[in-house]
Simulated scan of single mutants.
Amino acid sequence: MEVYIDIVKDILIFISSLGILLASYRLWVEKDRKNIIYARIHILGVIDCACFLIFIALGEPLLAFVYLILAPFLAHAIANAAYNDKLDKLSK
């Protein structure tokens, strides 16, 4: 029975990793969209929620907690960098 649980965990990790890679690839390839930074922040939030739930399902509450704490800082850093870049372009 333990073998089946490990197989299900491996499949869950593979599917989630594939989804994260596809979402990341699509966002980095498309550069002509207006306000692409907001789409990137949105997908970051979606991926964060998915990873948090996957860590909980895999029995890794410490990793889930660390990820839950650090991910909003990353989103804020991305938004802050984009905002400051726009301010620099407007002032010139």
Rank of each mutant, 00 (worst) to 15 (best):
A39D: 08
E60T: 06
L18K: 06
A64V: 02
D85F: 13
I15S: 09
A82N: 08
A81K: 10
F52L: 13
P72K: 00
I47S: 01
F65A: 14
I54A: 04
R40V: 01
S24R: 01
G19V: 05
P61D: 06
K31R: 15
N80H: 14
D85M: 11
L74K: 06
L53E: 03
R26G: 08
P61T: 06
F14I: 05
W28I: 12
L63S: 03
H42C: 03
D32I: 03
A39E: 10
A71W: 05
D88H: 11
Y4N: 14
L21V: 12
N84C: 09
N80G: 01
R40T: 04
N35M: 08
G45H: 04
R33M: 14
E60S: 09
L62T: 07
N80K: 15
D6N: 14
D6F: 04
D88E: 12
L90G: 05
F52V: 05
V66G: 00
K89A: 15
K34S: 13
L21P: 00
S16G: 02
P61M: 09
Y4R: 08
D88M: 13
D48M: 06
C49M: 12
L74C: 09
A39C: 04
A77H: 09
A57M: 09
K89T: 12
K86D: 13
A50K: 02
L90D: 11
I13W: 08
E30G: 04
V46F: 06
